[in-house]
Design a protein around this nucleic acid. Sequence first.
DNA 1: CATTAAGTTCAAACACAAATGAACTATTTG
DNA 2: CAAATAGTTCATTTGTGTTTGAACTTAATG
Lengths: 165, 165
Amino acid sequence: MKPDAPSPDSLPEWRVAMIELFVGGAQLIGLPKSLGQIYGYLYSAVEPATMDQVIVDLGISKGSASQGLKFLRQLGAVKTQLIIGDRRDHFVAEVRSKKLMGGFIREKLTPALEDGAERVGFIRELLAQEGLMGDSVQKDQVVKLETWNKKLKMALPLIQKVLGE
Amino acid sequence: MKPDAPSPDSLPEWRVAMIELFVGGAQLIGLPKSLGQIYGYLYSAVEPATMDQVIVDLGISKGSASQGLKFLRQLGAVKTQLIIGDRRDHFVAEVRSKKLMGGFIREKLTPALEDGAERVGFIRELLAQEGLMGDSVQKDQVVKLETWNKKLKMALPLIQKVLGE
DNA sequence: CATTAAGTTCAAACACAAATGAACTATTTG
DNA sequence: CAAATAGTTCATTTGTGTTTGAACTTAATG
């Protein structure tokens, strides 16, 4: 048996449970476990936390904490809050679903869709070169891809609206 | 320089490009690369393919092909088609977006949401035990989780409708 | 009913994304 | 301006999800 796990033991059970919930959520949308951990930690925190608290309470490395917080900030899922008379950054979870969805759509979904559109365009060219763009099965398949891409792009704002606050 | 990569070279460039597109798509929704490969291979195929063709053309192992096809079938993204006088299974990609979305929602999203709801219930209990469920920050946080879960559950059919054929 | 082929399973190997931590830069403060 | 503290970076290590392949089950065929 392990003598003692790093230290998350010092967190109350309900916080650990919340963190686990967010770890699952992160993995569902393809984000690393540690991001879920950090976000969950901040979500379950009653007041803003420093990077050092994150490191100690979650038992993760300085590097992970720094990178994780950086990414979450750029995603808009975490904000810093100025505490006067303390030069350390203090981190808070963004909980407004509109903001969260917005960040995810902007940082992950939109780029993926754009990449997809580009790739489909490339495929269309390749088929044209092969003389396969006059009504062939292949042409239909490409058109279908284009339709999917457009439909998804159009659906994003709607989804954001439905799930927004 | 490599003498020759396994064999995907025998596939026309446009098929390789399509397969790459689906690999990206698979990873976006958290599915393994090989599933994207297999689906892309079948999507870009003009006629039903046997498992053996998948193995040879994609250069993957029997095990991967078998497991991958099995999973895709249970997800509803791949169907088998009977070819009379041939005892091998012949696989075809399901392309109707309604079916695809339906399978994904049923196999991945719904279970995740249910697991989430259960976990939130558990957190609620833990907080109650600690006497923290009378208007505390914690209570608000749990309620917010419950709201998110409900909203997502309700949004699924709508999303399916918007993206369906 | 023995032989061949199709497809499945799962322990072990592998590859790669994620985490680490030491070295770094930037900022504060006495 | 030296020393201490906060935060970043990135080459290396680690962990784990994916892939493999050999052994297996199931089903067809002569």
